[in-house]
Simulated scan of single mutants.
Amino acid sequence: MKFTNKDLDGAVRAGVIARETRDALVAFFEDGRGGAPAFTMANVLYYLGGLIVIGAMTIFVTDAWERLGGLGHLLIGAGYGLAFLGMGNWLWRKREQRVPGGILVTAAVCMTPLTVYGIQELSGWWVWDAPGMYEDFYRWIKGGWFFMEIGTVAVGGLALRRFRFPFVTLPVAFSLWFLSMDLTAVLYGPDFTWDQRKVVSLCFGLAMLAAGYLVDRRTRQDFAFWLYLFGMIAFWCGLTSLDSDSELGKFVYCCVNLLLMAVSVILQRRVFIVFGALGVSIYLGHLAADVFDDTLSFSFALSGLGLLVILAGLQYHKHREAIEEKALCLLPAAIRRTLPRYR
């Protein structure tokens, strides 16, 4: 059942609820039902403008930026960051303007890589050799970017302590994803192998997923989404790129992706089912192209399997609560109590 402001006004006139309660309920629902911001044209414009600003100062920079030098990079990064932070803080104090305020704070955090890059240019202090131009930060895997990523994670963490706005976790999770790639060069040196990179990406992705799990549903707002997304990218890409010459290894890969789809139901997170479905599709494509290439019946058998999956979906939809309850009962009680849905 849905309620409008008119219904709430009627409840106030009837003496069912107090005027203060009515105002609190309106503020709660207009703030995105206590969680994500409401889907309004104003919020769409806020996020669109914020993404344009962030993109302009990060992934859309050009070769012309190199003419600024280290001091220019430092002044622009720190200047823009402080300006965004000041405007964001001013809007944040106005409850009805917290969405644009939080977006500007996020933009301030996104200026950290440029600021750190400027400091490193001036000091000449890199992990190894200078990794290249600032625009290469978003293109190439190099250990020299390490402190830019660590700095962004640290500044984002500090921002989250003051501004409880989930979008701030975007640059944090994004930098952690980049760190999962550049960390290979830090651990193994510039002559790392691709196999080492794959393993580091897989393990780091798992760590990010674990971090997302720990913060999931601790508050009404969703601070886990970006950790899950970029953690899943790091883990799944590392897993998918691992070479396996055996059919058993490829079958295990399919099973892991099926497990991800099951996890999506337990955690109620769509990102797991998206990547899991992609992985299963890759395995089925392998069967069609390499294993049963000359077998006419494979396509018919696979279509039959698809119909069975649809029927299973119908049964699941019909008995969803009972099935999920039984599935949860299979988990040890200690694990079941830690699930986000029970927090």
Rank of each mutant, 00 (worst) to 15 (best):
L170Q: 04
F167D: 00
F163L: 00
L187K: 03
F251S: 15
M232V: 00
A185N: 09
R220E: 15
Q196I: 07
D245E: 14
A207P: 03
R161N: 07
R162M: 01
G212V: 06
R161T: 02
L202E: 11
F163C: 00
G212N: 01
A173D: 04
V199K: 12
Q196G: 12
W177Q: 11
F230P: 00
Q196L: 08
T193C: 03
R218P: 00
D222E: 02
T240Y: 12
V199Q: 11
V200G: 06
D245N: 08
S241F: 14
K198E: 15
F163A: 01
D245V: 11
G189R: 05
A173S: 11
D182F: 06
C203M: 15
Y253S: 13
Y228S: 02
L202Q: 13
L187Q: 01
M208V: 05
G212Q: 03
W236C: 10
D191H: 09
A234F: 01
V168G: 01
A207M: 12
D191G: 06
L160S: 02
W226A: 12
F192E: 06
C237G: 07
L183G: 00
G212T: 09
R218T: 03
C254G: 15
F165R: 00
D243Y: 12
F178L: 14
F223I: 03
L209Q: 09
A224D: 08
Q221S: 12
C203R: 14
F178G: 09
F174M: 10
Y188Q: 03
F223S: 00
C203A: 15
V215S: 05
G205S: 04
G189I: 11
T169Q: 08
K250G: 05
M208S: 06
D191Q: 11
